[in-house]
Design a protein around this nucleic acid. Structure first.
Lengths: 202, 202
DNA sequence: TGTTTATCTTGACAGTGTCAAAATTAAATT
DNA sequence: AATTTAATTTTGACACTGTCAAGATAAACA
């Protein structure tokens, strides 16, 4: 039943595969993540994983969906705190960038073209990602009401524009182009300055 | 000498390869661009390209470098117009997004992790990309002096933050996640609103 | 018990990047 | 003009990839 036993039937191969794949992704990158190597690590034949995942795309979708569920959870906690202040927003921005850097391979899988453009995002991935996005929009709406973000446009538009900006910074960092990592904080702060409403103390 | 002749020595294989590769990239995507297929298209054996490019990475670097040189050229024209107005800035933003959408595969090659993270950017690519970036920073400085962009930070930081934002929007669009393409304009405009300085008409 | 169903395995195929060694031709040198 | 040298291209090979088809094994169920 457990992983260590060497029976013909593995028992919980599906979960084991997702875990091993997530691990391999984190440690060695998406490029090193092959179905065959994965099967080898788990101690099973090359094609065994195909009885639990239609193809490699399906496996990757499962990992990415996990990532979105975690992100939704983190966002939910923020919203439930009922503290829709500038400080909390800033904290989340730095947390977001930090997540992208620490889990760059997972981030790329979640937001990259591997699944959304080249591959085919399955339903559970679509649902998980939409949930995370909806959560973000809801929070943006709360921040608008608190005068942290501009109300000159709908929560959807402001949410799209801000998230896209964050995403761009995250990508520049994890894709290794242009930007020296030393000054991440300064860049994020400059970005925040453009996002956050200036209140003229009349 | 020309491409059509079927001599043993191709003559200008290197240039022909870059052109055919750019073409294939644009028409069928990065995934369909293999060294073997490329050689086949050009009408040469599988390993012939390796006498002109160290490896696939080197070929892709050449294509990406081309892209950056074109982008630098476009930026130079803007700067030379000496019209550092809000209108011109807006125009460039839309032009940038438009380029990313029309040449999404090239854009991904230029800014994606394929070369900068997974692969190894060669010197000419580094030089070409830095040139484009420097050009952008110079323009940002001019826009700051004209009160279009904020002067609360260095041209470098403001340039990084604005470009990163643009990049994020571009990526969301070309990677096929979340955003309906219908509202690209509205999203870009919301982003511009966050970037551009509001002048209180005292 | 026997039968069905889920799971896993081996064998196979076409595709990939790229190295080594041999073949061919153009250029350089004598 | 003849010969050496260098540039260019070729064939053969290797290890790796995703994944299909057919058969083997074990568990679930009748």
């Amino acid at each position: 039943m457990t992983t260590t036993k060497k029976t013909y039937h593995h028992g919980d191969l599906k979960i084991t595969l997702i875990q091993a794949a997530s691990d391999l992704l984190h440690k060695e990158g998406a490029n090193a993540l092959s179905m065959r190597k994965l099967a080898d690590i788990v101690g099973v034949s090359r094609t065994a994983p195909y009885h639990h995942f239609k193809d490699k795309n399906a496996l990757l979708c499962a990992i990415a969906a996990n990532g979105f569920e975690q992100q939704t959870e983190r966002l939910r906690q923020l919203i439930n705190q009922q503290d829709h202040s500038e400080e909390t927003f800033k904290k989340y921005v730095f947390l977001y960038i930090h997540f992208a850097q620490q889990q760059s391979e997972l981030y790329d899988l979640m937001y990259g073209r591997t699944l959304w453009q080249t591959g085919t995002p399955n339903d559970s991935l679509k649902i998980a990602s939409r949930q995370a996005f909806k959560c973000w929009i809801d929070w943006v709406e709360a921040l608008q009401k608190n005068g942290v973000l501009t109300s000159s446009n709908t929560p959807l538009r402001v949410g799209q524009a801000t998230w896209a900006s964050l995403h761009g910074l995250a990508r520049f960092l994890i894709d290794g182009i242009y930007i020296d990592e030393e000054n991440v904080t300064e860049m994020a702060e400059q970005m925040l300055e453009m996002m956050i409403l200036k209140h003229s103390l009349v």
